[in-house]
Nucleic acid binder design. Structure first.
Length: 201
DNA sequence: TCGCCGATCGGCT
DNA sequence: GCCGATCGGCGAA
């Protein structure tokens, strides 16, 4: 498959986190490793939005760890979860407002052979249907943390359009039951009927 | 298919 | 010392 997409600029991320999370669906996450291009269509995202969002890592304010969420839009935020898995986020909104979108799942497009090898599976639906899985498939680690989107790290491509509303599903975010009332916010977005999302209804 | 459980470690209390 | 924006393996049903 040949990509005919355009690189999405930083300004895409300098607006409401909800809008970014929703509009990232259908775009492509791309990375180059040596001569190999890895890419996948984003099919699932979550919005984490401000200190008032108890599920957001910045809900207890600025610390060494959460400082990154206050950075410029388009900055890469990667953290280690459960001591084992990396999770990929992209910082959103204006500088000094702590928010980001978590990329939770992609549909593998290019570099599938390498992804399968990294993931230890030949089942394409299981390659990148979860935040930890997609980082393993793409070889994304904490080394990219704090860097901007771009050819040296990873980037997003799109056609400039957006998916029709009827193609988009919405639900509470996964794994944030501890976040009191915020746990019910419907800030997870996914491509309806995609077999590549992390959990199907 | 479902639910439980352990792995493993950095950041916070 | 506790816990997590996860995952894969296991046993039970």
């Amino acid at each position: 498959m040949i990509r005919v997409y355009k690189v999405i600029g930083k300004s895409f991320f300098a607006r409401s986190t909800i809008a970014v999370a929703r509009n990232l669906l259908g775009t492509c996450l791309v990375r180059r490793v040596g001569r190999t291009v890895l890419s996948g269509k984003i099919v699932e995202t979550e919005a984490y939005c401000g200190e008032d969002d108890l599920a957001c890592h910045a809900s207890r304010g600025r610390t060494k760890r959460t400082e990154i969420l206050y950075a410029k839009p388009g900055t890469i935020y990667i953290y280690l979860i459960y001591g084992m898995y990396w999770c990929l986020n992209i910082v959103t909104e204006r500088e000094d407002f702590p928010s980001a979108v978590l990329i939770r799942a992609v549909e593998p497009v290019e570099g599938v052979t390498l992804m399968m090898r990294r993931r230890g599976t030949r089942k394409i639906e299981d390659i990148a249907n979860g935040p930890g899985k997609l980082c393993e498939a793409f070889g994304i680690t904490g080394r990219m943390h704090g860097k901007p989107l771009g050819p040296e790290t990873l980037w997003i491509e799109g056609r400039g359009g957006r998916l029709p509303a009827r193609a988009i599903g919405q639900s509470p975010r996964i794994g944030v039951d501890y976040a009191k009332g915020c746990a019910r916010y419907p800030w997870r977005f996914f491509v309806k009927d995609s077999p590549y999302v992390s959990r199907r209804s």
